[in-house]
Design a protein around this nucleic acid. Structure first.
Length: 281
DNA sequence: ACCACAACCTGGCCGC
DNA sequence: TGCGGCCAGGTTGTGG
């Protein structure tokens, strides 16, 4: 699933190819993916607007356009963007094609049709409630400690709460907690200063490393060039239920925390104060 | 404030 | 091999 490192990788691939080019129109194959405005207006309004810059906020991609609009999109679980020559064949899972001048198009593919797009003048209506960017310079260990104090929830739940920290999803939350040696059910506000420091380092290290690997190609993720990412080969706990822990040789377990599958090593991430007994599914 | 659950979807996997 | 049913999970919305 595209999380911060995957979206960041996509952004970095698109910038040199797309910035400075002009949208000439859109072909919508799944019109319900357009959240705003109406599908018809979306196509009319995007045409003629030049891409001035591309940014990422959390797991959202923001295309700032010349006509005061911002194209905002979210890939959700199975979305991907492909840069293809114009009039390329349209794959069965392609939900929208954004046509650009210069002889190429952006294909928005999405097996599960969860992905969405907006064309808005005020991007805050979409991304305004997101939390802090974990890779920004102002995301310090002290700040993380403050954020943890404010919420009485399991640390795993807090890490994936987009309104607190933006961009961390299920996979990287598990990886960061393993790297920090912290049990996913530990209460956020009970972590020691030392643990907060380790977690702060782990979060940034795990995300930065994954960007370096070009993202994790689990499920359908691919880069706009069609290349896959390699971060999944470096996962230590995510999707490794029953396999050996690389650090201690014990068995990786899977529990459910807040409705999400959660992978961890019981030996390397000892249980502290729990909110509830771990649930097995 | 916190948590659970349904809804949005489809393909892959499980068990029979 | 075929078929039904479950499961994955980001986000939003509802309700306890």
């Amino acid at each position: 699933m595209p999380e911060l490192p995957e979206v960041e990788t996509i952004k970095n691939c698109l910038i040199p190819e797309v910035v400075g080019h002009r949208f000439t129109g859109a072909t919508l194959l799944w019109a319900r993916m357009i959240r705003f405005p109406s599908p018809d207006e979306f196509g009319q309004r995007i045409a003629g607007q030049t891409v001035k810059s591309i940014d990422r906020r959390g797991k959202y991609l923001l295309f700032r356009l010349s006509g005061r609009d911002t194209l905002v999109l979210h890939l959700k679980m199975t979305g991907s963007l492909l840069l293809l020559p114009s009039s390329s064949a349209i794959d069965v899972h392609t939900r929208a094609v954004l046509h650009l001048d210069g002889g190429f198009d952006i294909h928005f593919r999405d097996q599960r049709k969860f992905g969405v797009m907006w064309l808005v003048e005020d991007e805050a209506t979409v991304v305004g409630k997101l939390g802090r960017e974990p890779l920004d310079n102002d995301f310090t260990a002290d700040l993380l400690g403050e954020l943890l104090q404010r919420h009485s929830v399991p640390i795993k739940a807090l890490l994936v709460d987009q309104g607190v920290i933006a961009g961390i999803g299920n996979m990287y939350a598990d990886e960061a907690l393993f790297a920090a040696g912290i049990h996913p059910l530990r209460m956020a506000r009970n972590l020691s200063n030392e643990e907060v420091g380790r977690l702060h380092h782990s979060v940034r290290q795990v995300l930065t490393a994954a960007i370096g690997y070009g993202g994790a190609s689990v499920s359908t993720y691919q880069q706009p060039s069609g290349e896959t990412g390699n971060a999944q080969f470096y996962f230590k706990v995510a999707h490794r239920r029953g396999q050996k822990c690389y650090r201690c040789g014990g068995s990786i377990e899977r529990i459910v925390v807040r409705q999400r599958g959660t992978y961890f090593c019981p030996r390397c991430q000892p249980a502290g104060k729990r909110t509830s007994p771990p649930v097995r599914r």
